[in-house]
Nucleic acid binder design. Sequence first.
RNA 1: GCGAGGGUAGCCAAGCGGUCAACGGCGGCGGACUCAAGAUCCGCUCGUGUAGACGUUCGUGGGUUCGAUUCCCUCCCCUCGCACCA
Length: 885
Amino acid sequence: MSDEGYDHATVERRWQEAWDDADVYRTPDDVDDPTYVLGMYPYPSGKLHMGHVRNYTITDAYARYRRMQGDDVLHPMGWDAFGLPAENAAKERDTNPRDWTFDCIETMTDQMESMGFGYDWEREITTCTPEYYQWNQWLFSRFHEEGLVERRDAEVNWCPECETVLADEQVEGDDELCWRCDTPVEQRELEQWFLKITEYADELLEAIDDLEGWPNSVRQMQRNWIGRQYGTELDFEIGGYGSVEAFTTRVDTIHGATFFALAPDHPISEELAEEDDDVRHFIEHEADPDGDEPNGVETGLTATNPVTGDEIPVYVADFVLSDVGTGALMAVPGHDERDHAFAEKMGIEIKPVIAPEPDDWDGETVPDAPDVSEDAFTDDGVLINSGEYSGLDSETARERLTEDIDSAEKATQYQLRDWGISRQRYWGTPIPVIHCDDCGPVMVPEEDLPVELPEFINTTGNPLDAAEEWKATTCPDCGSPATRETDTMDTFVDSSWYFLRYVSPGSEEVPFDLERANDWMPVDQYVGGIEHAVMHLLYSRFFTKVLADHEGLEHREPFTNLLAQGMVQLEGEKMSKSKGNVVSPQRIVEDYGADTARLFMMQAAQPERDFDWSEEGVRSTYAFLTRLQGMVEDYVADEPDGDDDAIASYVDAEIDATIAIASGEYDDLTFNKALRETQDLVRTLRQYADYTEPHAETYERGLSAVVRLLAPVTPHLAEELYDELGGDGFVADADWPTAEIDRDRVAKRRRLVENTREDIRDIVEVAGIEDPQAIDVVIAPDWKYDALEIAIESDADNLIGELMQQSHIRQQGDAAADYGQDLQAEREALTMSLEPDAEYEALEAAAWLIEREFEAPVDVVRADEADDSVLKNAEPGRPAIEIED
RNA sequence: GCGAGGGUAGCCAAGCGGUCAACGGCGGCGGACUCAAGAUCCGCUCGUGUAGACGUUCGUGGGUUCGAUUCCCUCCCCUCGCACCA
């Protein structure tokens, strides 16, 4: 396989060293508003996988493209270096997380260099260093000062395998599995640190509308996650227990509330459990919040409907969740499916109070009740059986009832919860707090930051808890003996602002240089996996907003354009170690080179789509590069001296077309299309050289354009070939090729040529012409172009009449009338063709393609040199064809 | 159930009101080159057709339009996210 190809190893090594020596990818601090291109930084697991390669090839190609377009570019890389796997690996290998992590970083850095990724390594950041994580601590203190940190008892998700707390976002699926290890998650009550992201819920939600550079899927996922709902909070009196608050979005159905339900862990349920055996038994043994079946137990209590005064039975039910709404609800089985199911099961009354709005409703008449015995009617409609509210529409009734009921208030509920950042693990940022018996939890003063991690202790629980010496300290407030907080921060804290740190990675006084951040931010193009759609991308938005409000950052959103890249699959399946269907990037680089791997990936599919890895595809990509290399070599070794003829002009026009199209596609990050065009041009150039002695200047211009168009994706070979062609400096710094041509004309010209060739093939085939002797291609007369233009612009009913007003058209007599009829028939679909001269030139330039294919001389003929009988078939955009056999 | 994105010729996949029987790739067929194979190059790949035509096609069934693969609605199917959410 690879022994047939070019010497990629030598080429790649040579240019990697040359780039390194010349510091090609450095972004100086004094550049003005660079284009900021960023890939989500990796967790240093030890090896680059195909997902990384794809992700970073996308950003690298785009960064290189922008640089060649003349932009200053910021394209940094760093390491999401804290996290549990390092701890586990350290235990397995009897080392410590720090050494293991830095080993991994070293390996992965080498792999990234071997892929040819052009990063400014001077800006590298590593989150597990005190130089970085001190700023997590500093930010935590700042958040605390601004009232955005809270410590409270919380029922938390606990993973017994990882021995740590998980955020809601880290619990996956119906089975509630840990996102890292797929262990079922348990619930525990612990004192936890929270960042109050809910304070920003409204802005985080509303600003999504303006994130036009983000994929809809991600925007929608964030909207769902925040889950804002407008409704009403109101009190129900429960005999003996006072008033209980319930939340409802459908207060218009309150006259149909036939029972009241409490969550099993609602305070009243817990109180009841102490005296009522049935309730206790239900809560402890029967309640199954995860089951499909709604279960419940009657309490014997009643609640008073604040509108009707009715006494309705109170149940403890497992379908009521304490963290949704208020953990207590008024149940309306007539108009809520879940309440309906429960009422049916328990034999509770089902009462319709909303009717579908009749089509011809007058706005007053009270319609007939719907049948809700089998199914609830859950849409809005018109109130019935609702006393003075009957006859109102749902919307109005909700307003009125919320006003009229004493205890009722408009309320907004969110699904978004505050962000619990406490983790009971070692390898993370220590939360900078000291616990004092007298003063309680006290922030570590800024001058004492960072709180550095102690040496790793290999133990089953939290190593920080075992670090006795480290734990013992004194209270910053009162000076008495005190202990350090042993929780560390969720690593998503690190990644919520790392994109700001790249701006000034060495800052010792501040987390980031504010002035530069204001100039350089936001990230223009962010690229990463869809798995971060909610967590990382939502937290980063939150941090950015807090920093805007309290630290003078002048941007409220971190990422202008977001690309969620697709997966690299093998036979339609996600590559994964457990399935054993992994293709190693390292092996591909060894066998075919980084350029081949990069080019294959970028041309295989649009970046956001999944695609299948194919060894066959890799081989043909490699063959393509080898061929290209040969073409350049041959050209340089023996420069051709062909004429600047029609064929050269065809090739020249194709070069322009390719540049124009490929540039547009690079702008849109649709590398696959840009590369397809570029590869087409290579084929055109080869055909050219095969067919005739090329015109040196034209041919070289083509090769040079190809090399530069490929340079963002295959940087090493592009450097090599650019050098061979005599380019100055690095192709990485070269100017992007330019073409003064618009895509519309390109498309028209190509279509004309392609249609003409197809027509000739059709004729040869259908007419059974074995061996064509000569082919004439005849351009339509000028008057037809004029007629076409008139037909397009005219809105007259009688097109023929309109045409005949032109004397030079009228002179054509029957021919004009015939063509006028044709135009009339297709009137609405007409589009302007190229001008006659442009058509002549395009076909003349493409004649060699036809001659080559049919092995017959081709004559492109102007209308005034042709017979009238032939001209009959010629139209603008469609020359007449005469084949002699 | 809700939401988002999809369903295009043997397969993958573009197009997203007329230039569309529908770009491109793979696979298949034929041809050139070669002693041969590979690579490369040139065609063909819905049906019919002895001069560029016609017919039937873009999940299903309707609709809008002079005209729909492209816009609207119904239904079916796929993928992803959320979900006993009050």
